[in-house]
């Protein structure tokens, strides 16, 4: 564990609490893409299957259980409790392509051709593009609630810090994980426009609006 990874994980954790706060405070999931949330639930379930096979640490186990449980809980909130506030008309990104593309990539690029490893690769590739429906929704509405932008920022920042973590681990431990690196770079790059607007608008006290 190094500084970057710890802060990244805490940021990831924070993003989920911010999302829960947004939904509970405004009693609405308006502006949140159900499809992105669904993809994250799939990402966590397929990646953390090793909960049953490999013990890493108590920290690791608790975080994994939290990520799976919270993602399923958010799906429940969006699908049932606050269903009336969700606007499917704005959430029209075709996730079939993301799922199929990630699966194909996982079948080609994996550390071992066994179901667990293929699903791990699948989750890494799917995570890298899982934010697309959310960003697409944002581009359609052209604006967002400030708390929603904090959520997206924390979610994007977490993987950006993982890039620092991977550089750190490579330098000091010789740790190499090419698939996670490439996916992490793609994931962070997808946020670049968002980061720019977040920095120039939200952090200067203005509303998040697309130019």
């Amino acid at each position: 564990m190094n500084f970057f990874r710890l802060v990244a994980d805490l940021m990831h954790l924070a993003s989920i609490f911010i999302l829960l706060l947004k939904i509970q405070k405004t009693r609405s999931c308006a502006g949140i893409s159900f499809k992105t949330q669904l993809l994250y639930a799939i990402v966590f379930v397929t990646r953390y299957l090793d909960l049953f096979t490999t013990w890493i640490s108590l920290y690791n186990t608790i975080m994994k259980i939290f990520f799976i449980a919270s993602s399923v809980y958010i799906l429940y909130l969006m699908k049932y409790k606050f269903r009336a506030t969700y606007d499917p008309i704005l959430d029209t990104f075709r996730i079939e392509f993301l799922l199929a593309g990630s699966l194909v990539l996982a079948l080609i690029f994996n550390y071992d051709f066994v179901p667990m490893e293929i699903l791990w690769s699948f989750s890494i590739f799917l995570e890298s593009v899982a934010i697309l429906p959310q960003l697409f929704m944002l581009s359609r509405t052209g604006e967002a609630e400030t708390i929603t932008t904090h959520y997206i920022f924390a979610l994007g920042g977490y993987r950006a810090l993982y890039l620092c973590n991977w550089l750190w681990r490579y330098i000091f431990d010789g740790h190499v994980d090419v698939y996670a690196w490439v996916a992490g770079i793609v994931q962070t790059a997808l946020y670049s426009d968002f980061f720019y607007i977040y920095y120039t608008k939200v952090l200067h006290g203005k509303k998040f609006e697309l130019p």
């Binding site: 994980d9 490999t54 890493i56 690791n60 550390y111 071992d112 973590n165 190499v176």
Partner: peptide, 10 residues
Amino acid sequence: GDCIIIHDEL
């Protein structure tokens, strides 16, 4: 294979 990585990250 011997290129298996232990996935110790989240």
